[in-house]
């Protein structure tokens, strides 16, 4: 990439739809040791949108989200190159806790709740940042309103809850830090379809409250339905991107599987 190209992304006033992007990812590559997992990924995230990332297993979706919250900065074990810019602030140079403080957080794959803490403690841990502490009790009440199922279970140890309930706790915990952007990694993994519907309803609700959402979703149809913008990844790169209304399913599945197989199946 030339410097001028880089700067265009960096200082872009206008992105998709004439709006100023909230996040600009430029030339992002990620490595596990010597193994390269992302190849010069570039995209923009507009404020208030739901961005869906789809792709087969191993396409680099999770690695991309991890890179965006600094979880790939692990010395010789894993690292990234390129830039992730949030309105002039370089997130790629921050540690995970600073990125969360800047307003970007993630609901990790497999929920990853703190198993020996209660529901309430898991949520309050989400408000650990000094800027969140004062309002943490109010925020807790807000979350119990939004997820009424927790209200009577707030003192329960989370490892005793069902998968769907745990996923809800994980979503609520992420919201406790009052984020501008939430990355959802494989929200529906291992959950019954009815529960997944519930969870996506919450995602819509969160998005309507002004939070920008980025979701990784295995179910292609669902991804196209819930999002304003779709990225299709294949082998560590973005191979197709666009408004779900403008993309037809054949286009997406051929990108998803790589063109040859996609054409064959289509």
């Amino acid at each position: 990439m030339s410097i001028s190209e880089h700067k265009r992304g960096f200082f872009a006033e206008e992105g998709r739809g004439g709006k100023r992007p909230l996040l600009t990812v430029s030339e992002l590559s990620a490595y596990y040791g010597e193994l390269r997992a992302l190849f010069d990924v570039e995209f923009q995230v507009m404020p208030g949108e739901v961005l869906a990332i789809i792709g087969a297993n191993g396409a680099g979706k999770s690695t991309l989200l991890k890179s965006m919250v600094g979880m790939m900065n692990r010395g010789k074990t894993a690292h990234t190159t390129g830039s992730i810019d949030m309105r002039g602030r370089r997130l790629d140079q921050l540690t995970t806790e600073k990125i969360v403080d800047a307003g970007v957080t993630m609901v990790p794959e497999g929920r990853r709740l703190f198993p020996r803490l209660t529901v309430e403690e898991n949520l309050l841990t989400g408000a650990y940042l000094p800027r969140c502490r004062e309002a943490s009790e109010d925020k807790l009440v807000e979350m119990l309103d939004m997820f009424p199922r927790f209200a009577e279970r707030r003192t329960q140890i989370v490892s005793q809850m069902s998968g769907g309930e745990q996923q809800m706790v994980a979503v609520a915990r992420a919201l406790m830090s009052d984020p501008q952007v939430v990355l959802f990694d494989e929200l529906s993994l291992g959950l019954a379809p009815a529960i997944v519907d519930d969870i996506y309803e919450k995602v819509q609700q969160i998005n309507q409250a002004g939070v920008t959402c980025i979701v990784i979703e295995q179910d292609m149809k669902r991804a196209l339905r819930v999002s304003n913008h779709v990225l299709v990844m294949l082998e560590g790169a973005i191979v197709l991107e666009g408004d779900p209304k403008d993309l037809n399913e054949d286009q997406v599945s051929s990108a998803y599987f790589g063109s040859e197989i996609g054409r064959a199946s289509a």
Binding site: V100, F114, E121, Y128
Partner: peptide, 19 residues
Amino acid sequence: RAIRAASDDAEVSPLMGIN
């Protein structure tokens, strides 16, 4: 709580803003 959270899952606790 941050101490207990880090004890349960050190990898994810930075996502709570925990150093």
